[in-house]
Design a protein around this nucleic acid. Structure first.
Length: 429
RNA sequence: GUGAGCGUAGCUCAACGGUUAGAGCACUGGACUGUGGCUCCAGGGGUUGAGGGUUCGAAUCCCUCCGUUCACCCCA
């Protein structure tokens, strides 16, 4: 009557990233860091959790994220904490807390790391997912918006993202957005009968979201309603027009998408998404916008800002297939018998200290098996130590890529192999 | 939170309600008693997601639960 111990499984929506996939993650991290730093951004690392209040204030009550997607818990001091669902609010918090910027200067930071939202997983959507994000604080000019979009388009070209598209919109500022919101809601109120049930709820809670409903009837009705762009105030319109001019100057293709309404409250003026139509329902792999009111909202001095986040899982899905396997490198010692094994251990230790990848079999397998292992693990050289070699004070060094082998006196083995590896690497490069 | 599809070996998948649930890949060993890749041979691996029901008989049909995938919603 033994209780069967259940295997403890991972948490739903929080997938493992296995060794075979890590190379691609590193590839985009390295590429992103390089581009971001070339554009003047510095890395910042904020904690994975914050006081719940930070996100409620920053993202906004009534948004889906705050209302039903946050991982919130009480810590032992009875303080409500939340696993970060996004990166902007924490960065702004840190910015204010440490006075990261002196008045009038531009502060550019980026982050890479996991975010947490309690949603039902589906293609391109997870409960723990990873973002590469950046925030630029302190400049209101549309030139900064253009630079951000240039950065992203350059990054996606560098990473060879296939067929990406930039969607652009402006949702106005504190003066024109409420006006538009009012006009739009009023217009939809008159057409209530034609709206889907979801949109009836949206009409109450956040009418602008009707704009990106996918139901045909709602789309048609929204098309007749006032559009955000024709409702912009003079300053917002000028900002948007300037941005478009700069994008043309920088030769960045975009299309205006007036249905682009983002789900976080803090956005003002410019909003954008980078879309890959091949991705399925969750086809936006990067998104962001301007948030000129957020810093004051969080108790800081009036400070304009703009930021974006790239969904790494979705970016990964947009990348070309991985290139052929890694080059052969390192040394695998093939030993026969105890004495040879001990010699192998010492040589492997020394090779590792010299900075080489090196290993040997610890299960006393047959020579054939050890050779198979060396081949499977892509070692560049096999260092064969058998009775014949020990008797002669030599080792057999076999080139696994080309098949040739030679005898090397034991005292010279390490030097010979380190040199051989250098040459092999130079040849590959 | 709602809906639909799918759960069979480590992976990808077979098996009209009817013998002992199979194949490819992977893994281990051998052919080659000290040499990888190619080939051939052999071997280990399964409570068919779990529980219940129908039936002489269930991987197969029904119910419940769990997991997973996709979609809605929302967003990266």
């Amino acid at each position: 009557m033994r209780e069967v111990q259940p295997v403890i499984k991972g948490v739903r929506g929080a997938p493992d990233i296995l060794p075979a996939e890590v190379g691609r993650w590193r590839q985009i991290e390295v590429g992103a860091r390089r581009v971001l730093e070339n554009y003047g951004y510095q890395e910042i690392r904020t904690p994975m959790f914050e006081r719940t209040e930070l996100f409620v204030r920053g993202i906004g009550e009534g948004t889906d994220i705050v209302d039903k997607q946050m991982y919130t818990f009480e810590d032992r001091g009875h303080e409500s904490l939340t696993l970060r669902p996004e990166g902007t609010a924490p960065v702004v918090r840190a910015y204010l807390e440490h006075g990261l910027v002196t008045k009038g200067s531009l502060c550019k930071v980026y982050y890479i790391g996991p975010m947490f939202r309690h949603e039902r997983p589906q293609a391109g959507r997870f409960r723990q997912f990873h973002q590469i994000g950046a925030e630029a604080l302190g400049v209101e000019d549309a030139a900064l918006d253009a630079e951000v979009l240039d950065l992203l388009s350059h990054l996606f070209d560098t990473l060879e993202v296939a067929g990406w598209q930039l969607h652009l919109n402006s949702i106005g500022c504190e003066t024109c957005r409420p006006v538009f919101r009012e006009r739009f809601a009023l217009s939809m109120l008159g057409k209530k009968a034609g709206l889907c049930p979801d949109c009836l709820v949206r009409l109450e809670r956040n009418p602008l979201r009707i704009l990106d409903c996918k139901v045909e009837g709602c789309r048609a009705l929204a098309a007749q309603a006032p559009t955000p762009l024709e409702s912009l105030c003079g300053e917002c319109e000028a900002h948007f027009r300037k941005l478009q001019g700069l994008l043309q100057l920088l030769k960045i293709d975009y299309s205006i998408n007036q249905h682009l309404v983002r789900g976080l409250d803090y956005y003002t003026r410019t909003t954008f998404e980078f879309v890959n139509p091949a991705l399925g329902a969750q086809n936006a792999f990067a998104g962001g916008g301007r948030y000129d009111l957020l810093v004051t909202e969080m108790g800081g001095p009036p400070t304009p800002g703009i930021g974006f986040a790239i969904g790494m899982e979705r970016l990964l899905l947009s990348l070309p297939p991985e290139r052929p396997g890694e080059a052969w490198a390192g040394v695998f010692a093939v030993t026969m018998g105890e004495e040879a094994f001990h010699l192998g251990l010492r040589l492997v230790q020394e090779l590792r200290r010299q900075g080489l990848r090196a290993a040997l079999d610890m299960e006393r397998r047959s020579v054939k098996s050890q050779m198979r292992l060396a081949h499977k693990e892509r070692y560049r050289h096999a260092l064969i130590l058998g009775d014949d070699e020990l008797r002669a004070g030599m080792a057999t060094v076999k080139d696994m890529a080309h098949g040739g082998q030679e005898q090397v006196p034991l005292p010279e083995v390490v030097e010979r192999l380190t040199r051989g590896e250098d040459q092999a690497q130079q040849k590959e490069a």
